[in-house]
Design a protein around this nucleic acid. Structure first.
Ligand code: MN
Ligand code: MN
Ligand code: MN
Ligand code: MN
Lengths: 219, 219
DNA sequence: AAATAAAGTTAGATATGTCTAACTTTGAAG
DNA sequence: CTTCAAAGTTAGACATATCTAACTTTATTT
């Protein structure tokens, strides 16, 4: 039985693993906002439960069991987000914080029923994939808007950061999942991008914004 | 900030207070299934936070702050039960255990929205009153079926025990809130009661069943 | 290769929630 | 009014999750 704190460590490990597959104690400590001894202790406990592999002074790695355990927590989180959005009528900018609590509910029945009501959904309100009951999730091959190098047409597919402030900014700008953007120019100096879409003639996005948007190029 | 364990102590104190207004350490320990030193320690902490009044060797009493705090947890529990029942389609026998987890979610927004969706309900699926945001709840004047002394007609208004097994028993017998029962005879020897209702010609209820059913006499 | 910074570990402490064993107070019976 | 069981308390322990300060190992830089 993962306690909710351990579940949070597992989630952090999952996301930090996405780059290189391994995670340093320091990285994990920063992500969890705890000291190095704390994370060191916790890693020993996670290793004892078979969720991570760890040899002294070496970087940490999630085991396949650990990956599955993490995916099942992420599943609960994202199902909750979609439920809050679709069934309860919350805005996409409100759901993350509530889901952060709901994801620790143990009742399998609860999430089972949510899954049914939502017709076994595959994406959450921010466009992130929802793992299935086995912990498997699709891995869409989107590009970051900031990585597009020449003018073209793209569709907004997912948001990398589901913090309230950023999503409120997108609301103001009328940017939603599915919105099609015409990229008119890319400023190589600071990486800012000029786009037009819907009723918006021109919006200049800084690199820090465009690097949080996953898009798909439209042929 | 009550931790979820303290919230459970508050709830237990609330229910144990209903009889005499005061609670012994031993009673509270039995209800929470913890040892006397554990409950003794906890009571000191609850007293330090102003939720209970306690002098050495004396029985415990919830303060008005404690009563309110308890009522707000009960509010979350009962709102959750009704939400699970009404919106998510769970049976009344399934909702208690899930609500036991949901009641500890901190997000006010979540329960706010639930309250709105349910149109500010006053009773949960077991007929228990839902406290309002101030912690006030109606106190219906029902009688226990076991307290009825002579044959008459009553309506089932609330269930005293929301455990799965008892509610499944009621499901089997087709007994629901609102069901009208004709009491045909009362056996003074063992307190068993003969009732008829709907398509059921005769059901003999033991005292242990009839003492879990709140009813209202129909003129 | 030596010096040094970064990363990781150990030691010792604190807070919360729990336990058992032993002791004290209270109150009910005799 | 003594006796004694029940109720309550204290002492000392353990598990979990956290901290700071100090130490060790690894890796990078000169
Ligand atoms: Mn989220
Ligand atoms: Mn999301
Ligand atoms: Mn309940
Ligand atoms: Mn109920």
């Amino acid at each position: 039985m993962p306690t909710s704190i351990k579940e949070n460590y597992l989630k952090a490990l999952h996301f930090l693993s996405l780059q290189s597959g391994v995670v340093s104690l320091t990285e994990l400590g920063n992500a969890m906002e705890v000291s190095k001894p704390t994370v060191n202790d916790m890693v020993k406990k996670l290793a004892a439960r078979g969720w991570v592999k760890h040899e002294r002074y070496q970087p940490i790695q999630l085991t396949s069991e650990g990956h599955k355990a993490a995916a099942l927590v992420i599943r609960k989180h994202r199902l909750s987000e979609l439920f809050l959005y679709q069934v309860m009528g919350f805005g996409w900018e409100e759901v993350h914080d509530i889901a952060e609590e709901m994801e620790h509910i143990k009742s399998e029945l609860f999430f089972q029923r949510m899954d049914e009501m939502l017709r076994f959904p595959v994406f959450d309100p921010h466009g992130s994939p929802i793992p299935d009951k086995a912990g498997n999730m699709v891995t869409p091959t989107y590009q970051l808007l900031s990585q597009i190098s020449s003018p073209c047409r793209v569709a907004l597919k997912a948001i990398r950061n589901s913090g309230t402030d950023f999503l409120k900014y997108l609301n103001e700008k009328n940017l939603q999942l599915g919105t099609e953007l015409e990229i008119s120019s890319i400023e190589s100096f600071d990486g800012s991008i000029s786009v037009s879409y819907g009723h918006c003639e021109q919006l200049v996005m800084s690199h820090s914004v465009s690097s949080l948007l996953w898009v798909e190029v439209i042929l």
